[in-house]
């Protein structure tokens, strides 16, 4: 299953490390990553592939959400299908 992880908020040290560690622990491979910092605001987008076809999405989303809260940023994960559907004919 492909998913998109987005991280936004005030920039701080170790964000990529923390998010990618969590994804690794949950058997998700990062296929693409891009980040920008504009005026201290951090925005990162990751395309990830989860090894399991039907992972426990709720648990993964909650873990990322909790990580986001602990570092004061907004971390969310969504099925990649929604972006394919909305932006490709």
């Amino acid at each position: 299953m492909r998913a998109v992880v987005t991280v936004s908020g005030t920039d701080r040290r170790g964000v990529i490390a923390k998010v990618s560690t969590l994804l690794d622990e949950r058997n998700c491979n990062i296929e693409d990553i891009s980040q920008t910092i504009l005026g201290g605001q951090f925005a990162m987008v990751m395309i990830v592939r989860c090894e399991e076809e039907n992972p426990d999405f709720t648990a993964l989303a909650e873990a990322l959400d909790e990580l986001g809260r602990s570092i004061g940023m907004n971390v969310r994960i969504q099925h990649a299908e929604i972006f394919d559907a909305m932006h490709n004919v």
């Binding site: 987005t6 987008v45 929604i82 972006f83």
Partner: peptide, 12 residues
């Protein structure tokens, strides 16, 4: 495929 801008557009 979709790019970063499309992802951010959807989230906005």
């Amino acid at each position: 495929m979709f790019g970063k801008n499309e992802i951010l557009e959807t989230i906005d």
